[in-house]
Design a protein around this nucleic acid. Structure first.
Lengths: 243, 243
DNA sequence: CCAAAAGTGTTGAGCCTACACCCATGA
DNA sequence: TCATGGGTGTAGGCTCAACACTTTTGG
């Protein structure tokens, strides 16, 4: 943590990113194991430089952890509860990692800012899970995907943040054509339907779903995909390039 | 400003409130004239105490300025651009009000925090304009209603904030049954229709609108309202009390 | 030729729009 | 009795869910 110079950051503001990916029929979230003693898991997070916008900071945090650029990323809520499970977390953190708050006054100044109350701006992102190389930054011990329905306890209110991000995702999946960000460049209608069924946790009719998606007029039909299976080959689609 | 003790506030975070009211067929926004030399207008704003949640702070700011309690209030976006017209505003402010940044180091400390970059959490509220007593706080010279389509230039990105609040309002007016907050306790269907037409800036069919509203099953029909006009007396309605 | 899975057409229910008509009210 | 404006009924069109049928593929 000492690589952070707190004076470069806006105090008491953090950015938490809920990064969704899709694989094997389920929605995943990227979670980091913090690089402290003790079993602390969290959403990828970071701070905002004085000369950086919130959006830029969120994007930087995302790129650091995933290596991906040009990703759909959107702020969905700012969490400003006065407690946010902060004290429980801090007590445990400090008792297991006494070096965070050393007796030495000068060293202490360097790390003390981290123990204050934080306001968190929540962003969510949708990524193609196959393109991501989860990358640890200085504050991560390990970083990896968890099924959204089987998340471990996360620090602060991060579990609640994921729930709210999921609600927002459901609200906007259609409108913002987000489904495509969760898939590879080309995909079949069935794969797209699977994404929708996973996000909304309910089945869609094959034919009606297809009609709806094609009516959106954003899909481009490509060649057929021959899978070797004993059935009609499905078409591949891709998201239309904007001219 | 010197009544503020900056150490009690979270640094570099402010809350801006877009407070909508409805009167005479148009949507109004509450705007304050700042208590400085120079013609500075702004949304009602304030800061967040260390031991206060964002929602509590927004509510406090609203109550201070309107005297109203139990008001619908919701966070809609956090504005974190790195410029936000801050420097232009500050240069003008300081040149017209040199006492803000005095030479005296101690006094300077007390006011300097105010000149830093701020992240603003935007809230919007809907109020019954007749119940509001616009009340100046220490930083307001005057506070009053402006037509949303005829807003004067406001400081920072406050004009943009109002636009975005308006978009959010349109998005949720139905879903959250917000229309009622803009009206007195009882109202006619026509008055409710006027609110909708003002918010969405388009006409609705009289009969279809009525059907839609009644189908929502949240209105309670009361006695007729005899206006003295030479026509059938309209019913009064009110928002059903939840049991 | 068959099973499996994809593509496509069609019907009916429900909702919204637009128009029409009726009713209460005060002049 | 008339003009005004509010209350309500209904036909037409659109959307979408549900079902049915056809087509393609490899075994």
């Amino acid at each position: 943590m000492s690589s952070y110079n707190p004076s470069n950051f806006i105090q008491q503001i953090s950015i938490d990113c809920t990064i969704f990916g899709y694989a094997e029929g389920s929605l995943k979230v990227l979670v980091t194991h913090l690089n402290f003693n003790g079993d602390f898991k969290a959403l990828p997070a970071g701070f905002v430089y004085q000369d950086e916008s919130l959006d830029e900071a969120a994007y930087r945090i995302l790129v650091e952890r995933t290596g991906l650029k040009d990703i759909y990323l959107e702020q969905f809520h700012t969490f400003g509860g006065k407690e946010r499970s902060h004290k429980d977390f801090l007590n445990k953190l400090i008792s297991l990692n006494p070096e965070i708050l050393p007796e030495d006054t000068i060293l202490r100044q360097e790390t003390e800012w981290f123990t204050k109350r934080f306001i968190s701006v929540g962003y969510y992102a949708l990524v193609d899970i196959n393109k991501v190389r989860p990358t640890t930054s200085t504050i991560d011990k390990y970083i990896g995907w968890y099924d959204v329905d089987e998340l471990p306890p996360l620090i602060f209110d991060h579990n609640e943040q994921v729930k709210r991000a999921q609600t927002t995702l459901r609200f906007f999946l259609d409108e913002k054509l987000l489904g495509f960000n969760l898939l590879p460049e080309t995909f079949t209608m069935k794969e797209l339907k699977n994404v929708y069924e996973t996000v909304y946790d309910r089945p869609f009719r094959r034919n009606n779903f297809q009609k709806k998606m094609l009516d959106l007029n954003v899909l481009e039909r490509l060649d057929k995909k021959f899978t070797g299976a004993a059935n009609k080959a499905p078409y591949l689609y891709r998201f239309k390039k904007v001219p």
